[in-house]
Structure formats: C-alpha cells, structure tokens
Computed example of a mutant assay.
Amino acid sequence: MKIISNPLVLKQHLKDIDKTAGFVPTMGALHEGHIALIKHAKEENEVVVVSIFVNPTQFLAGEDLDKYPTKDEADKKICELAGVDILFFPNAQEIYSQDEVKICAPNVRGYVLEGATRPGHFSGVLRVVMKLLNIVSPTRAYFGKKDAQQLNLISLMVKQFFMSVEIVPVDIVRDSDGLALSSRNVYLSKEQRKEALKIPKSLYAASKLISKNILNTEKIKEEIYAILAPLETEYVEVLSRDFEVIDEVQIGNSIILVEVIVGETRLLDNIWL
C-alpha cells in the first residue's frame, strides 16, 4: 500500500497509472462500515484509493472536532489488510488555503433535517468532497447510506457540476445489536448504548407497519417518536429518495430518516423502502 499526503503528488500518480479508480473518502476511525465501502470499491475498480482527513470546515463552533476519534496507525493497518492500493493522508494546510473559493450547500436541501440544527455543515462537506474528487478523479466514489442527506447532496453536486464520477451508495452496516456503525459510537456509555438501540427498534417497527399496508407518513412518524421517547429526537421524517415531502410511503422510492441525541452524541439512522 502506498501512502501519499500531497494532493498534487497523488493526482499525478493516478494520472500516470491510468487505471479505473474506486475512491472511499473517510474521516478515519475506520470500522466495518468503511471496510464494506472498500470491498465494493475493490470489486468494481482496478485501483482503490482511501482518504483519511478529519475535515475542519464541516464542524460548527462547539462541536467535537478536537475530540473526534483518531486512530491513525490502526487505520493504516486496516487499509493495508483490506487491500487498499493508495492511502491519501493529507493535513488541513495541504487541502485548504487562506483565501478560498467556496462552494455552498443549496439553500433548501442543505438547511433542512441535519442542516437545520447544523447550519453550514453541508457547505463544509461539499467543499471537501469537491476537492477530494478533483484530486483523485475517480471512476467511482463510495458513500454509505447511513448519511443519507449527505449522500443526496453529494449526488446533487456531481450532477449539477457535470462531474465525471459515479456516486455509489452502499448499504448501512449494523452491529450485532442492530445499532448502525458509526465512528461516534465510541462516545456512548453502556447505558447510553442500550438507549440508542431504540433507534433501530423504531425503524423496524415502522417497517412492520408498512408491511401491514399502513403507509400514511404521519402515523409512521408517530410510532417512531413513541418508541424513541424520552430520547432527544432532532427529527423523524419520511421522504422520497429525492428528499421531497410525501404523505404516503412509496415502496421503492422512500426513506425514513431519524436523528437522535444520546447523551451528547448525535446519531443518524435511516431505512430505505
């Protein structure tokens, strides 16, 4: 495995080898969810590139940038064992400059759901993803479905900026107890983790309602809220996969999204229908 930190060196290296490239951008603290992304990339491309970069522009004031989990040596070993060809490991000075041209999230889609409580977050996400995609110029880039709003906005950016990359969504990977894997799960105490299990439980209950042909979105949301109580729930929404408001679930084109605060930890989950 080749480790590169300089963006221009990586860009030239990939240009010289001239092979199809699968790209997995991460913020490190790798887990089985990231490994699933890498496996998909390996199956569909000649070269696999993984980036590890804790992006400062997507953290708001008072958020957990300084304590975001980092496991650099462990992450390198995981990438090596997973068969990654190139690990891109830049620092912020190599990615950002003092007087930046900026990309902003759309005024509506970027400021609802997670964007409503974290204004500016998705501008930071799109800003770094645009840079990373331009550096790597991959054939395909792989993103987990757990961050569904992020996935939607990145796909929209690629479409609207006519970028030559295929965005590949990959299914959520869950722990044995059903909790969606996340680097932030390490923040949870044992008791908080038990409480967090209400999240997948609520989504399972929603899927059971839908299997009984109860498709009204308000009834589904009521059921989810009832199971999540008394957790601090930021939102529960049932939308089309284009993130449009719907009154009834449309099988094959709907998604239920939840965001919950457990202790001080923000947890996202969803189910695609």
Rank of each mutant, 00 (worst) to 15 (best):
K2N: 12
P7I: 06
L8S: 15
V9L: 15
L14I: 12
L14R: 01
D18R: 08
M27C: 10
I35T: 04
K39N: 15
H40M: 14
H40V: 13
E46I: 12
V47L: 13
G62C: 12
Y68T: 02
D72K: 12
I78T: 00
A82E: 02
G83R: 07
P90E: 06
A92E: 13
S97M: 10
Q98H: 13
D99E: 15
I103P: 01
A105G: 04
G110C: 05
T117I: 14
R118S: 02
G120W: 00
V129W: 01
L133P: 00
S137L: 09
Y142L: 09
F143C: 05
G144M: 01
K145E: 13
K146V: 04
K146R: 10
Q149V: 05
L151S: 04
N152D: 14
N152K: 10
N152Y: 14
L156M: 13
F161P: 02
M163D: 04
E166P: 07
V170M: 10
I172E: 02
S176V: 15
D177C: 11
G178M: 08
G178D: 03
L179P: 01
K190P: 06
E191P: 11
P200M: 08
K201I: 14
A206N: 02
L209H: 07
N213P: 06
I214L: 12
K221Q: 15
L228D: 01
A229T: 07
L231Y: 04
E234P: 08
V238N: 01
L239Y: 03
F243S: 07
E244V: 12
E244C: 11
V245A: 13
E248A: 09
V249P: 01
Q250R: 10
G252W: 15
I256T: 05
V258M: 07
V258T: 06
E259K: 08
I261A: 11
L267W: 02
L268A: 02
N270I: 05
L273P: 03
